[in-house]
Design a protein around this nucleic acid. Sequence first.
RNA 1: CGGGGUAUGGCGCAGUUUGGUAGCGCGUCCGCUUUGGGAGCGGAAGGCCGCCGGUUCAAGUCCGGCUACCCCGACCA
Length: 588
Amino acid sequence: MALRMSTLFLRTLRENPADAEVPSHQLLVRAGYIRRASPGIYTWLPLGLRVMRNVETIVREEMDAIGAQELLFPALLPREPYEASGRWTDYGDNLFRLTDRKGADMLLGPTHEEMFTLTVKDLYSSYKDLPLAIYQIQTKYRDEARPRAGILRGREFIMKDSYSFDIDAAGLDRSYQLHREAYVKIFDRLGFDYVIVQAMSGAMGGSRSEEFLATATNGEDTYVRCGQCGYAANVEAVRVPAPAPAALDGLPAAHVEDTPDTPTIDTLVAHANAAVPRADGRAWTGADTLKNVVVTLVHPDGTREPLAIGLPGDREVDEKRLGAQVEPARVEAFEEKDFAAYPTLAKGYIGPGALGLEGTAAIRYLLDPRVVEGTAWITGANEPGRHVFDLVAGRDFVGDGVIEAAEVRDGDPCPTCGHGLESARGIEMGHIFQLGTKYAEALGLKVLDEHGKLQTVTMGSYGVGVSRAVACVAEGNHDEFGLVWPRAISPADVHVVVAAKDAATHAYADELTVALEAAGLEVLLDDRAQASPGVKFKDAELIGVPTIVVVGRGLAAGEIEIKDRRSGERRAVPVAEAVAEIVAEVAG
RNA sequence: CGGGGUAUGGCGCAGUUUGGUAGCGCGUCCGCUUUGGGAGCGGAAGGCCGCCGGUUCAAGUCCGGCUACCCCGACCA
């Protein structure tokens, strides 16, 4: 049945809503696709729901094509499985929690690893049942601290999540690859520019993880890309190429110098160049200094742990990168009262001597990958106004490990080819992830192998933000007049505008609509009697169906008009050829 | 959680400085006219001016407190 504007549950707005900033949010509200119900929670009106259903269909078709089977878990879940996996606490305040009438703790599912894992455990027990891929398209709930940008980041959203179950790593690789190929097809069909980037694989088990980012200047994720070899990674996951270790022989001995009033890298470099010039005549730079930053980690159980990070002084700690490394712990600033608890830390003059689990302050000390054996540094001497020069890594100090927490800059060398990296922003649309045995182990998912021995199942996790995709496509497909949907997810194939009020024109438009539907097209028919042609044209442009057909004054001459929403091109077509021409236009 | 901003018919806004009958545009309803680029004329409905308290003869407006929402950051598919 055609959607008739005369009865469609729709009200377009002439002006942008005051609470919307990003184009997708403004246009989806203005054009009558969504309404805000509560912060980060939206009602899907008929047009919006049709678009989302179209996205779901694409996702469903590609999932089914790789043999994944659809099921549906409840959104309202018991606490126990999340307690078992540790996420009842790990998720913190982002979990929507509630209590039933008996006082039992429940939650609204933020994602369903536990339920998938437990259900497979419930039903399967043999390697012969594997591999298995199952998925659902479902509403998820996360109590985001700050929902934003309309449906780009909501507290309730629709997500397709799937999981693969394999007996071994080789199987996981195959399942992962199948999903990867399916995702490429999904995002190609959805109609926006995207890039596949390496992502954080998480703290446990995972070995491979990639994100599908829609390129968008106002995106929340920053990624880097190498124009030479094609390497691309979320900035959180960028691996800094470590220089080769240098020999320790013949390096000058470390020496402590007075460096009064040099609590910052800039003041230190200036002082060093004036008072302790380099033997080779080159000037000291921030990159010759080793900056030691102390932060506080707050673990999910509430315990606090100081952490020191040693990195070249010309770089800041990137809080997102650091946060991704220490997850699920949270990073907080190391404050004055914390310094008071560690009297051997001289603020502004902290050096490796005080750090490390063997150091005087006994704080865990992790080093930037650039700080390899044989590199010499200017760094704090752990007393106010004093620094150590020629302090050599591997000879004079060692860290407790390596951490990727330093900021990444445009022009930094690509980890695979050395060419300069460039950064850009994107919106995370999909994430594929080799989970490994994290959840299978936590929840006891094992099957018997061909030798009759129990094996822990290895899992992959794969998500697509379905509702986010609607916003994301809108974000990338609009102009000054309104939305411009890609054909694959447009709420209709063709928007027929009746630009006249006489009965004959309306009757013809009805006939045309019936004929187009018989030809397999979905039609949005603007049959409103009272609206002027101008209003109808404006609404058609705002709503954004890619093909607009105008039935109006040309009808007297036996013609209708076909307009391409994206290019604005229009052409007159004889009535006799109208259906064929429109079908051809929609077919592309 | 830190910073900034906003709150007045369905939507967008003015009015608050200087207290005195709550306004404008759009939308909605009725009538007539009008139909190729957000029509015209006439009429109408619709408001606890975010909430609570205070000052005052009188508060949308002044004072105190609170709440909600939006944006930036922290945080996060």
